[in-house]
Write a protein that binds this DNA or RNA. Structure first.
Lengths: 138, 138
DNA sequence: CTGGATGCAAACTCTTTGCATGCAT
DNA sequence: ATGCATGCAAAGAGTTTGCATCCAG
């Protein structure tokens, strides 16, 4: 499991706030890709005054702590993925839906190539684009 | 080289307009990632009345024809890549700069996994994120 | 001629920023 | 008490849409 959020925050001298704790818990409960707006909707059930800017700030913080990954999709809202294990994504180019892909790829070569070019790579993200099952039928 | 633009347009019953021809030529001359705005800047030197919506429409058309690829960037403006040969990209998470990466990855497994999930994949795009040479120095 | 492409403006969405208030420390 | 986090509003960037005009076919 991931390191406790409270501890990570305290170690960095950051505040343990109800918003942060609730968002973290909600992300774990939902356990799927969420947009900032979706998360706000869920969080608002328990914390009615939560605001979208705070959700963005908190999700970006969680991304820095490694608790979520920001998935940049081709269009529309950014997705935040609570799944930390390595995996990839498929996105339908018609309806925009994003799904997980358990298959992984060997990125050693590209990471080495990145280093050769002077980059200090953190990770790699693979997105397969195509048509989802329902869009392919039409 | 790629099929002549004029021919592709005529075959589809689309019009061969000065804007389309000029943008195509300009893309080939620049031969690098461009944003819609950058391309408009270049194109405006010869066609002063060109407009951003037309640039977007034309770039999307070119993407459909396979003449350019729209590159997912982490934020900011979308990039259009005139390079058709398979390659990947690195993006600096600090300054946002995007560079080519000649190394490729074996995507057979992920494509097969996508098919198993009912997707009809068109292709896959890998983006390595990290720090570029100049941002890593600071 | 005629319909698709263009240019302009405006709308729209998503995300970030500024500032006053409040709360964790 | 101190100052970071929050909530609100508003700005900002990028992209898309609507519509009148224009031009390639």
């Amino acid at each position: 499991m991931a390191a406790p959020l409270e501890q990570q925050l305290r170690e960095r001298g950051m505040r343990v706030t109800p918003q942060r704790l609730l968002m973290h818990r909600t992300l774990r409960e939902l356990d799927r890709h969420v947009t900032a707006e979706e998360l706000l909707g869920e969080v608002s059930k328990r914390l009615p005054n939560a605001s979208l800017p705070t959700v963005y700030a908190t999700l970006d913080l969680f991304a820095e702590l490694g608790l979520v990954k920001r998935v940049r999709t081709g269009g529309g809202a950014a997705l935040y993925d609570p799944r930390t294990a390595p995996h990839n994504h498929v996105q339908c180019r018609r309806c925009g839906k994003v799904e997980d892909l358990d298959s992984t790829v060997d990125v050693k070569n590209v990471l080495r190539a990145a280093k050769r070019q002077g980059f200090r790579p953190d990770g790699a993200e693979l997105v397969v684009s195509g048509l989802c099952a329902s869009c392919a039928r039409t």
